[in-house]
C-alpha cells in the first residue's frame, strides 16, 4: 500500500517535472513568438503618424522603377553617380547599381555576359574607380548586343527582409527596401538570400548595404541619382499611385518584364527590351 502510494506520488511528480521542464523550454521559444506586440501589425496600416520626413507623407506614394534596355548605351554614368551620391566603396566589388552587357556572337547560342567590373573593362577604364565598357568585341561578328542596368528590385516579397534576424532591413510603406545601418549586425544572411546579387557587405562600416532608390532624394521630390544622370532616359522612376507619372506610363505603354519571376519575390523594377539570357 505504501509502495503503491509512493509510486503514485512518483508518477504525479514525474508529470509535474515533465510539465515544468517543458514549460521552461517552451518559455524560451515563446519569448520569440511573443516578441512583436499585438500593436505592431495594426500600427503599420492604421492612421499612425508617418515618419518625421519634412513635407513628405509615405502613405501617399508607391514608388516604382523602370529600365528600358533598348535605350541604354552603357555609358555607366549611373554607376558613377550612384557611387558618389551614396558614398559607396570605390572598387569593383561593391555596387548599388551596375550595368551588364549581353553579346551574341555569330554562331553562338548563348550570350557572352560581362559587366564593367570585368577585368577587361577595368583595364580599359584605367582604374576600378572609373567605369567604361571596353570595345572588346570589335573584331568579332556580333549578331545582337544590348546593355542591361541592374539594381535592387525592391521586391514586394523581399527574401532579404524575410531572413534578416533583427529587423535591420525592412520595406517602407511607400515600397522601398532600406537598411537601418545602426541596427544591422552584419551577418550577411540577406546578402546570401538576395537572388539578384543586389546586396553587398560594406567593410568600412561592417554592415550590409544596397540601393535605396535614393530614399533621401525621392522623399525630397528629386529623382534617384542614377535616373537624374542617365543621358538617354533608359532609367525611369516615379510614383505608381500617380497615373500620369513616367513610371505609370512606362508600365502601361510597354510589355514589361521582371527578373527571376520564379523566385516569388515579386520585383518592382520593370524591364523592357531584355531577352531570355538576362539573369
Amino acid at each position: 500500500m505504501e509502495e503503491n502510494e509512493l509510486e503514485q506520488q512518483d508518477r504525479r511528480d514525474f508529470l509535474s517535472c515533465l510539465g515544468s521542464a517543458l514549460a521552461c523550454g517552451a518559455a524560451a521559444v515563446a519569448a520569440s513568438a511573443l516578441a512583436p506586440p499585438a500593436t505592431a501589425a495594426t500600427a503599420a496600416t492604421a492612421g499612425a503618424k508617418p515618419p518625421a520626413i519634412p513635407g513628405y507623407d509615405w502613405s501617399k506614394h508607391r514608388w516604382g522603377y523602370g529600365v528600358d534596355a533598348t535605350k541604354c548605351i552603357g555609358c555607366l554614368r549611373c554607376v558613377e553617380a550612384c557611387k558618389k551620391e551614396n558614398n559607396v566603396l570605390g572598387d569593383a566589388h561593391h555596387f548599388r547599381t551596375w550595368v551588364e552587357r549581353y553579346v551574341y556572337l555569330e554562331g553562338e547560342e548563348t550570350a557572352r555576359i560581362d559587366s564593367h567590373a570585368d577585368p577587361v573593362n577595368i583595364a580599359a577604364s584605367g582604374s576600378e574607380g572609373e567605369y567604361r565598357f571596353a570595345d572588346r568585341y570589335k573584331d568579332a561578328k556580333v549578331e545582337k548586343a544590348f546593355f542591361v542596368p541592374k539594381l535592387c528590385n525592391h521586391c514586394t516579397h523581399p527574401a532579404c527582409v524575410q531572413v534578416c534576424p533583427t529587423g535591420a532591413t525592412y520595406k517602407t510603406e511607400d515600397g522601398v527596401v532600406v537598411i537601418d545601418h545602426t541596427y544591422c549586425i552584419g551577418c550577411q544572411y540577406c546578402v546570401q538570400a538576395c537572388p539578384y546579387g543586389a546586396r553587398y557587405f560594406d567593410e568600412r562600416r561592417n554592415v550590409t548595404d544596397k540601393c535605396t532608390w535614393c530614399y533621401h532624394r525621392i522623399t525630397k521630390g528629386l529623382q534617384p541619382a542614377c535616373v537624374e544622370v542617365c543621358p538617354v532616359g533608359a532609367r525611369i522612376f516615379g510614383d505608381l499611385n500617380d497615373k500620369q507619372s513616367p513610371i505609370s506610363q512606362f508600365v502601361k505603354n510597354n510589355q514589361v518584364q521582371v527578373l527571376r519571376r520564379e523566385s516569388g519575390n515579386a520585383p518592382n523594377v520593370f524591364y523592357v527590351g531584355i531577352d531570355k539570357e538576362v539573369i
Binding site: 534578416c164 534576424p165 533583427t166 535591420a168 541596427y183 544591422c184 549586425i185 551577418c187 550577411q188
Partner: peptide, 18 residues
C-alpha cells in the same frame, strides 16, 4: 558578424521569419 556588439539585437527583437 560585422557588429558582434549588436548580436543581441537578434534576441531583443527577433524577426520571426528569419
Amino acid at each position: 558578424l560585422g557588429h558582434p556588439e549588436r548580436a543581441f539585437n537578434a534576441m531583443i527583437t527577433p524577426h520571426t521569419t528569419s
